[in-house]
């Protein structure tokens, strides 16, 4: 399946969001997710199944003013 991960076309094997995140290297740490511009809290990640063409955004702490 091909999704858009942080703006780049990416192939993933498992469409379940938690599994897809692990596959993409998000094993631990602080990060937040949105699918198709909608926030997906940690508590709901297990309920989300990605579909072909979905847009997955993963963000983490960064410097800011």
């Amino acid at each position: 399946m091909i999704i858009h991960h942080n703006g780049e076309e990416t192939t993933i094997a498992n469409p379940q969001l938690n599994e897809a995140l692990r596959e993409l290297g998000y094993i631990e740490g602080r990060f937040a997710t949105a699918v198709n511009e909608n926030f997906v809290p940690i508590s709901e990640r297990q309920t989300i199944t990605l579909r072909d063409g979905d847009r997955l955004e993963v963000v983490a702490p960064m410097s800011g003013g």
Partner: peptide, 21 residues
């Protein structure tokens, strides 16, 4: 003050920044 930006799951730079903060 801090912000959020796209994270690269492999590098995990955001996690290092969070430790610094």
């Amino acid at each position: 003050t801090v912000s959020l930006r796209r994270e690269n799951g492999v590098s995990g730079a955001g996690q290092d920044f969070w430790q610094l903060i």
